[in-house]
């Protein structure tokens, strides 16, 4: 039979020599290997204490961004819902009333905005589709739950807080998407 790769190894069941049969050289070799590992730096990351940086391509729980004044950026244009291949996003648009300028950036806003986390495939097409840089996928992890209903995340879970400490930093991700978009446009 023609070998498909050059990785296959022919097994030879030949008689062992005396040195092989007393096993001691092999045992000493094995002990030497483990001893070398004894002095090696541990590969452990002590998870809750220290966290490894996420790659910019990591796509986790979504966030709906606010602008620097604390107003929601989303205008409920629906492009994200259209772009979503899993049809996980639904929203209801509403018109901004007088006096709500502090809350919403544009004249139209999303009264409800829901993402079904069980449908979502975390592809990131919504952030690419968004013209207002309102939605981003972050390095946070979607928490587990026992009830399916609880996986439909509304605005209370998606929109970031107004206070500076509650803002979610997406600059790395933002930069990554911009570069990606630029690369796509230059190619076109």
């Amino acid at each position: 039979m023609q070998p498909l790769t050059n990785r296959s190894k022919v097994i030879v069941n030949k008689e062992m020599s005396f040195m092989e049969r007393i096993y001691i050289p092999a045992i000493v070799g094995g002990m030497w290997t483990t001893l070398k590992h004894f002095f090696r730096k541990p590969a452990t990351v002590k998870y809750p204490d220290e966290q490894r940086p996420f790659a910019p391509v990591y796509r986790g729980l979504h966030v709906l961004k606010r602008d620097e004044n604390g107003a929601e950026r989303c205008t409920a244009c629906g492009l994200c819902a259209v772009a979503c291949p899993a049809e996980a996003i639904t929203m209801v648009a509403e018109e901004r009333e007088r006096g709500e300028e502090k809350l919403y950036r544009e004249e139209k806003y999303a009264a409800t905005y829901e993402i079904n986390m069980l449908r979502c495939i975390f592809c990131g097409l919504c952030e690419e589709a968004c013209p207002k840089e309102a939605i981003f996928l972050t390095d946070r992890i979607v928490p587990s739950d026992y009830v399916r209903q609880n996986f439909i995340f509304g605005k209370d879970l998606l929109v970031e807080g107004v206070e500076p400490e509650k803002r979610i930093d997406v600059t790395v991700r933002q930069k990554h998407i911009q570069e990606k978009k630029q690369a796509a446009s230059t190619q076109a």
């Binding site: 483990t34 590992h37 004894f38 090696r40 730096k41 541990p42 590969a43 452990t44 002590k46």
Partner: peptide, 13 residues
């Protein structure tokens, strides 16, 4: 601890 060090881990800490 020895098991951990031999396996490039930290062990109980």
């Amino acid at each position: 601890k020895v098991a951990a060090f031999l396996q490039d881990r930290v062990g109980p800490d």
